[in-house]
Design a protein around this nucleic acid. Structure first.
Lengths: 301, 301
DNA sequence: ATCATTATTGTTATAAAGACAATAATGAGG
DNA sequence: CCTCATTATTGTCTTTATAACAATAATGAT
């Protein structure tokens, strides 16, 4: 019995819920699928599917098996592809997913340069703060604030993602420059929105984490918009240093320093990470892109 | 092409370093392996093995591919076994690996009881503080101080593993009862040996972690021996609470309290975890053992 | 230089999967 | 309640792929 073929058949039948549809997918008669799946069930000594002429239902154990098999088939496919493209030129479609802010400020410029270096790579970039799966089939490289979701994913630290508070000089003249975190209650806060909601302003006082968030005057996941509001004197913005840097250099914003260091997370080392699947590093297009991005970003920041 | 068969052939050839030996393993002529591996290489468009009549060498890409394939084959085998034994009675060999101390004090008694409940399960218990792989084929259930090594492994917290300092009343009379961690330098320390070496005595002073370990008078990974030494008045022992409890109840040792809490790790929640592979929870023998152990240990401690 | 060992190739036999037609079952619609 | 199209299964034949066995070529050790 060609077990792998049987597994692919079974998997497709579960997905489509029909032997006929799955058979069309493989361009073989439905009888083949029926026989292979039956073989599989016999060899496992378990019923995976409950069939009737109208509906195909998956049994409980069949569902569990299918989930595991699916993962295994994906892994195998990836390993094969990695070997197949081993000595090929970097080419083909490369899907990159990035946090919006990082994408706009840093990534897109770099990718223009990258595109000229490797014209045979077709870039497919999507900017989103939602975390994409990376492990299914959808993304080759992801850039995120978090860390690796599992051990098959490699995470490389690209740059610091330290959040700092800043405000416009005009705002500080009018409202006074706060020096203690407790004074923040009398100020206005511009909040960065993460996928988990607006990030609170925290600090550690005598070993205790305290939320010292000022009243909200604006929330956005868009660094530019937040910085713009701050420049207009609408409040104090708390955002990654690299989003505020240009404003600070022009003197439109200035960094604030408090008696206790402000953070947005209890995790000490907030950073931007580049993520990719270890298996796929063998694929030339992935390898050159990872190497390129890591080198460029780490050189600049 | 039966891809899976080809992969198994290839894998075995790499392991044995010989087509002939691998062929014997499968009870087929070597020519079959030769042809299947050649098919595989053709379909991947890469050379996996460098053959000569005398030696079979794995190419670089072949090595990488083999590692990944091996993992995939293991996973598949496990999924199949899980389904196969789905509605079977709990039976067969069950391999349990445990930390020595926990094994002697707690596990072995529980397993006696478990063995009577499920006489058809053949227990294979090994006590060792070295971490076993759990993911290769060697252990069904492991009990360790650490946490899950990867996301395919499920970790259940069994009980606290808080290390506490204790000494014999006689010792304290003679040497004085220390109250500040800084006084420890004038005392004698009995150290618990972890796989990473003797565990240092740490405490957090004003947010800084400080090593306040007293001079060593004894080191062992055996709780009983350490406690025995402490009872004899040789020094202060720092070991998991559950290893010292019986001595404290008999008044042979008494817990020490300092101005700063003593720890052996910066990790706040040191605990004993039961580990198993998620996939294998479907296997009846594994399921009943996990459920049994978790229920019993959590009820008692 | 010789020779046993080992991988490969050629050929035939066997087993497994596909193709096609026919049958049986079932759930939706009238 | 009955009809009928849809769908999975079964039977039979064909095709394909793998195993078996024998023979050949290559290679590294003695």
């Amino acid at each position: 019995m060609d077990e792998l073929r049987a597994l692919r058949y079974f998997s497709k039948v579960v997905e489509t819920g029909s032997f006929t549809k799955a058979a069309k997918f493989f361009s073989v008669p439905p009888s083949s699928l029926s026989r292979r799946v039956a073989d599989l069930e016999k060899s496992l000594g378990a019923t995976l599917l409950k069939r009737s002429t109208r509906v195909v239902k998956v049994t409980e154990i069949g569902k569990t098996y299918h989930d595991q098999i699916q993962d295994i088939l994906n892994q195998l496919e990836q390993s094969n592809e990695a070997v197949r493209s081993y000595h090929a030129k970097p080419m083909g479609q490369l899907r990159i997913s990035s946090m919006v802010g990082f994408g706009e400020r840093i990534l897109l410029d770099l990718l223009d340069e990258f595109g000229e270096l490797y014209p045979e790579i077709i870039l497919d970039v999507s900017l989103s703060d939602e975390l994409s799966t990376l492990g299914r089939d959808d993304v080759d490289i992801a850039i995120r604030g978090g860390y690796a979701p599992n051990e098959r994913v490699q995470a490389i630290r690209l740059m610091s993602n330290e959040f700092i508070p800043a405000a416009a000089p005009g705002y500080l003249e009018k409202m006074g420059t706060p020096e203690s975190v407790l004074e923040l209650q009398q100020h206005m806060g511009l909040y960065f929105r993460t996928p988990n909601g607006p990030s609170p302003w925290l600090c550690e006082i005598k070993g205790q984490w305290v939320d010292v968030s000022p009243p909200q005057v604006g929330v956005s996941n868009n660094g530019k918009w937040l910085a713009g509001k701050a420049v207009q004197g609408k409040g104090i913005v708390m955002a990654p240093r690299w989003t505020l840097e240009p404003y600070m250099q022009r003197g439109e914003l200035q960094e604030l320093f408090f008696d206790h260091v402000l953070r947005v997370s209890q995790n000490a080392e907030l950073a931007v990470y580049l993520l990719y699947q270890k298996q796929r590093y063998l694929v030339p297009k992935v390898k050159v892109a990872v190497d390129f991005l890591v080198a460029r970003v780490q050189a600049k920041y």
